[in-house]
Design a protein around this nucleic acid. Structure first.
Length: 573
RNA sequence: CGGGGCGUAGCGCAGCCUGGUUAGCGCGCCUGCCUUGGGAGCAGGAGGCCGUAGGUUCGAAUCCUACCGCCCCGACCA
């Protein structure tokens, strides 16, 4: 590939719209361009990087026994009605009508389509198992697309679906996919962790997310310092505390004029936030519920949602709280509260705590569950904190930010039952197929890799994902010897199957160096003055700046060696 | 959708508050000279429905209204 013939529109200045490194650099290096919010064109280098990821995913999926297919992006609403998701999925599902006024949608995921295919084509236990995947552009009308490729509305995804005869077999397939995913992300050269996860709107019983560790991640992970426990903080189970057995003290009403916030109340009453219990009001599918958590804790919305089995929970605003309880926010408490009351397990273990009095400017002290109020349910409802012990081994936990690049789910028979995807078992009876589903954000991996690998000068691609392996700079376009050497190196490298970009532009050296750094291509060869003077060309490693001086005829074998090394390092058996 | 910010040349921005010449700067682009190891220099040049539509005014990039678009913070997810 010759730079002079390529479309690589690099930018000297940072685009105003980009905040995070991957977004900024993808734009600056001419890998992507925005068409509209959350929708991007992949320019040649961007596409090349995407293809690298795709190829790794294909190889590992195929190796694990899955088969590639390609399903339609436009899907009929009726199919989605069978599972109830046409109504449930929410506004991310882009719905529209065709010219015959048939309702349709753009596929954000393909459970319905694949299950429809399976019920038509799979009849016998002899046809199972099946594991099918596709790599396709998905559309989700995200509320807020952001960060370039990180959260687009249109994005490339690998989605796979498995069908098995029973739970045990489905579990084996799940494990197979889990292992394949570990290989995929390892080969991509990413620093990642598989974590226990909430299964979200796709449904299902059990799931793991694969998280790339990066400060710009949208998820928070808890990772044990000792054992291999790791979980999304949405899901991470909090270890129940030991019950406080102090004697119950007399409940007492205290005037707390104007003290609404936890710190203000604590300061006024000379107590710690851990001795206070706050009453939060949420709307669960529109219904108000009150949740009690300790003053220094946060309610975990996903845990709440799962406990109640509702589609959506949202914090109520001040007016909604007042309408539901007749109490202004800041003075809410469990004693005599007129709405459903849920209690975090930590609070249930506390004695003699402080709460709002359900009356403006008053709080209550020495309040106790059981004596002073009853809970509709006690459960783990709060966000885990770094001072909680590991739920698996009790050691200290660390919190890290992560980018979700993959997600595996055990789906069970939810979809197959809803859509009547059954097979005939050995005993002649119809049984629903047991499903799993497995996603990988292909375009997001490119962004995540850049988040993890860049410096102030640009991207630094790991070899397996690099759009090209080598950039070859001709710094003497008017010098016959230099140009001849550069051109012949270019040909020799290509003959060896090495992916090389020849910078043959009529630009000054500094300009070419800057662009080369920005593009993030792992190896750079410079053919310039040093050739005429000392007969050498330079080979520089983008990752650490190390430079090797070589005779032109040594280059091809050295490069081959380096590439082989870089590719094999990242492969696990 | 709620909160915050922004739309002026391909990109980054100034001008707007306090209306009044031909709307400006840096980068990029074109031509020529010069230069060639870390985004050079000089000279000349092209490029603007000042987001859109209304309104106020003798006069609007500037004031008012509505709409559209984009970015950031929250709820979603690969």
């Amino acid at each position: 590939m010759r730079y002079s013939q390529s479309l690589i529109p690099t930018l000297k200045e940072n685009p105003a719209e980009a905040e995070i490194a991957s977004h900024r650099l993808l734009l600056r290096a001419g890998y992507i361009r925005k068409l509209t919010a959350g929708i991007y064109s992949y320019l040649p280098l961007g596409l090349a990087a995407i293809r690298k990821v795709e190829q790794i995913v294909r190889e590992e999926m195929n190796r694990a026994g899955a088969q590639e297919l390609l399903m339609p992006m436009v899907q009929p609403a009726d199919l989605w009605r069978e599972t109830g998701r046409y109504e449930k999925y929410g506004p991310e599902l882009l719905r529209f009508q065709d010219r015959h006024e048939r309702e349709s949608c753009l596929g954000p995921t393909h459970e319905e389509v694949i299950t429809d295919l399976a019920r038509r084509e799979i009849r016998s236990y002899r046809d199972l198992p099946k594991n099918l995947y596709q790599i396709q552009t998905k559309f989700r009308d995200e509320i807020r697309p952001r960060f370039g490729l990180m959260r687009g509305r249109e994005f490339l995804m690998k989605d796979g679906y498995s069908f098995d005869v029973d739970d045990t077999r489905a579990g084996e397939t799940y494990q197979l996919m889990f292992d394949a995913y570990k290989r995929i992300f390892t080969r991509c050269g990413l620093d990642f962790r598989p974590v226990e996860a909430d299964s979200g709107s796709i449904g299902g019983s059990f799931s793991h997310e694969f998280m790339v560790l990066a400060d710009t991640g949208e998820d928070t992970l808890v990772i044990c310092s000792n054992c291999d426990y790791a979980a999304n903080s949405e899901k991470a189970a909090v270890v129940p505390p030991v019950t406080d057995n102090s004697p119950l003290l007399e409940m007492e009403k205290v005037e707390t004029p104007g003290k609404r916030k936890v710190p203000a109340v604590c300061e006024f009453m000379a107590i710690e936030p851990s001795e206070l219990v706050k009453t939060m009001v949420y709307k669960a599918d529109g219904e108000p519920v009150a949740i009690l958590v300790r003053g220094d804790r946060e309610v975990q919305g996903v845990k709440l949602k799962n406990l109640l089995g509702v589609a959506d929970v949202e914090m109520a605003d001040d007016k909604e709280v007042y309408d539901a309880t007749g109490v202004p926010t800041g003075y809410l408490g469990p004693v005599g509260i007129p709405i459903k009351l849920l209690v975090d397990q930590e609070v249930a273990a506390m004695r003699n705590f402080v709460v709002g009095a359900n009356e403006k400017n008053y709080h209550m002290k020495n309040v106790n569950m059981g004596r002073d109020f009853e809970a509709a349910a006690v459960a783990d409802l709060r966000q885990i904190s770094p001072d909680d012990p590991c739920p698996s081994c009790g050691s200290a936990l660390g919190l890290k930010e992560g980018i979700e690049v993959g997600h595996v789910f055990k789906l069970g028979t939810g979809y197959s039952e809803a859509m009547n995807a059954v097979f005939q078992d050995q005993d002649g009876k119809d049984k629903p197929m047991v499903m799993g589903c497995y996603g990988i954000g292909i375009s997001r991996i490119v962004a995540a890799a850049i988040e993890q690998n860049h410096d102030e000068n640009g991207m630094i691609f790991p070899m397996p994902l690099a759009p090209l392996q080598v950039i070859l700079l001709n710094l003497g376009l008017n010098d016959e010897q230099i140009t001849e050497t550069a051109e012949s190196l270019y040909n020799d490298l290509q003959d060896k199957g090495i992916e090389v970009l020849l910078d043959d532009r009529d630009e000054r050296p500094g300009f070419k160096f800057k662009d080369a750094d920005l593009l993030g291509i792992p190896l750079r060869i410079t053919v310039g003055k040093r050739l005429s003077k000392d007969g050498i060309v330079e080979l520089r490693h983008r990752s650490n700046g190390a430079t090797e001086e070589l005779a032109p005829e040594q280059i091809v074998s050295r490069i081959s060696e380096l590439i082989e090394e870089a590719m094999s390092n990242k492969t696990i058996s």
